[in-house]
Amino acid sequence: MEFTGSDKYYLNPELRLIVNMAVKMEKPLLLTGEPGTGKTQLAFEISRTLGMPIEVLRAKSTIKGEEVCYTQDTVLRLNDARFGAGKTQRNVEEFYDYVIWGPIGRAFRSEERVVLLLDEIDKTESDVQDNLLDVLEETEFTIREVNEIIKAKIKPVIVITSNAKRELSDPFLRRCFCHHIPFPKPEEMEEIIKLHFPDVPQGLMDAALKIFYELRERGYEKPPATSELLNWIEALMISGETPQNPNDVPYLGTLLKRTADILSYRKVDKISGKRW
């Protein structure tokens, strides 16, 4: 079982090594890096190429921890207790009739090996992360209400992503393999573009990449990332234009999204336009 990437996803050799090492070691793989470096995409790619189903947890700041394993639908149970379960075949006495499994619960209960993606884990509170950490390390959790342990039948391949919004705790990091994906270099970006648009003219490619990386250098609040670049190139291909001047970029709105960034871009334009 070797992860090799597919024709839809550019995988650099280092990252390929890393994924395979983490899979073999059965360690959670924590991926950090700015948006657009393909962190989340990687988990889906592993799932696709290794033929494993994927369970996804999209973290939110309101997550408490337990509900990623399971939740008990208390309101429904209260309701059934009061008004009866009707024809639903739910039994108010039966705890498991009111359990809703979260992504971790589903992954652990699965009969086959799955990929478990915890997306943007940094959005959660740090004590939630600590709770998760025990669960992931032991690959088991306890259902408190009935004091029963749910243990993973087969250890899932765990991929965790973080946008570094909040620092993860040291014990959490210790139990993961951590990798920071650097922003793709121009050569790599070219590969990525070719995967999406196999017939970009080379002239357009070179010009677009040059301008793109120059704009990134200017330090905007939200620097353009891979997805913006892809949109931009698509727009350029449809219109048949080739950008020349980094200070006169067609379809600027596809690259810069924030008003402040667009304004500051225009200012640069003005200054270089009438230098004295």
């Binding site: 090594l17 890393i18 950090t32 040291d170 210790r174 393999f177 951590c178 990798h179």
Partner: peptide, 20 residues
């Protein structure tokens, strides 16, 4: 997991470095 210098580099970093 480690069969050459590249893999040693990548694996040592992966298993020991936790912060960017």
């Amino acid at each position: 997991l480690v069969n050459d210098l590249d893999e040693l580099y990548v694996y040592a970093r992966l298993s020991m470095v936790k912060h960017v």
